[in-house]
Amino acid sequence: MLEVTKKLVNLLDLSPIGDDHFQGDSEDLGFPNVFGGQVLGQALMAASRTVEGRPCHSLHAYFLRPGNHSMPIDYEVQRVRDGGSFSVRRVIARQAGKEILTGSMSFQVEEEGFEHQFEMPDAPAPETLKSEHEWGKLIAPHAPEKMRKSLTRDRPIEIRPVDPVNPFKPEKRPPHKQSWFRAQGQLPDDPVLHQCLLTYASDFHFLGTSLNPHGVTFNTRNLQVASLDHAIWFHREFRMDEWLLYDKDSPSASAGRGFNRGNFFNQNGVLVASTTQEALIRQR
């Protein structure tokens, strides 16, 4: 496992601080606030620590306040119900006593049932694409100096975007995006860790799908963008150290909000997880 990936795995390895209470560190990715995927991944890890033998099948969370990446985050897990097949947990993330995220996670015993899925859409093979890190090095010389470190930093999650948007010269495009994702290096055989890593990564390149039709990006002046909520459904087993295609679309934007959907497929065309997110995309 690469050092940068090990750092992310350690970031998700929360410290117990009492009954069903955990604490996690924060990382600075060069964003103004804590990366939402980090809080989601840590929240799922906290809830998973209170459930045995039942993998998570869905997560629904709301971002309440921006997080401070210079402070740790406390996670309180509430055991809502343990039934014969399902367990439900509520998680509250806090910094300085204030809630920054609240969410619910549902866990289910493994069982057999009906099977169907959407077919995997066409996409270029990941080996034919440049990584986000490579694109960052190409555009860094043309970026403001304060952004260059963020563009060229080492990444634990390798992302290879299909037809990436130039963040400084955006053009209007259809509300659809694709990227290949995988963790750098081999990971332990821990299904919970793989779910938490996918949860972490699912917040990358997602919100921007709803910006595509409007020819704007995060760098556009007088544009306020923020994730409002995030949901994930885990359908089938997967590994985050193998390539996954993240296929995203945005069916609607209205009232200062953009709605995004996503599907993760492995290279064999198996649909392993689905996501949704609504985001604030407000012109000041």
Score class of each variant (00 low, 15 high):
residue 95 Q to N: 08
residue 47 A to P: 00
residue 85 S to M: 14
residue 58 S to Q: 14
residue 64 L to R: 12
residue 99 E to D: 14
residue 84 G to P: 06
residue 47 A to I: 03
residue 62 Y to K: 09
residue 43 A to I: 10
residue 87 S to H: 11
residue 96 A to S: 13
residue 52 E to Q: 15
residue 36 G to C: 06
residue 89 R to A: 12
residue 84 G to E: 12
residue 65 R to P: 02
residue 47 A to Y: 01
residue 99 E to S: 14
residue 66 P to F: 06
residue 51 V to W: 01
residue 77 V to Y: 04
residue 50 T to E: 06
residue 37 G to E: 03
residue 60 H to Q: 15
residue 65 R to F: 07
residue 96 A to T: 08
residue 44 L to Y: 00
residue 76 E to Y: 04
residue 72 P to Y: 07
residue 45 M to S: 04
residue 71 M to I: 08
residue 78 Q to F: 14
residue 99 E to R: 14
residue 53 G to K: 09
residue 94 R to Y: 00
residue 34 V to C: 10
residue 48 S to L: 05
residue 43 A to Q: 05
residue 74 D to M: 01
residue 90 R to L: 11
residue 94 R to H: 03
residue 96 A to F: 01
residue 36 G to S: 09
residue 36 G to A: 08
residue 68 N to L: 13
residue 51 V to G: 03
residue 88 V to P: 00
residue 89 R to K: 13
residue 88 V to Q: 07
residue 78 Q to S: 14
residue 97 G to D: 10
residue 101 L to F: 05
residue 42 Q to D: 08
residue 85 S to F: 12
residue 87 S to A: 15
residue 46 A to K: 02
residue 46 A to G: 08
residue 48 S to K: 01
residue 74 D to S: 10
residue 72 P to Q: 05
residue 99 E to P: 02
residue 44 L to M: 10
residue 33 N to Q: 11
residue 75 Y to G: 02
residue 57 H to W: 03
residue 93 A to H: 04
residue 61 A to W: 02
residue 95 Q to E: 07
residue 41 G to R: 00
residue 97 G to R: 05
residue 57 H to M: 04
residue 77 V to L: 05
residue 84 G to D: 10
residue 46 A to D: 05
residue 93 A to F: 03
residue 92 I to A: 11
residue 36 G to F: 03
residue 45 M to H: 04
residue 35 F to R: 02
residue 67 G to P: 04
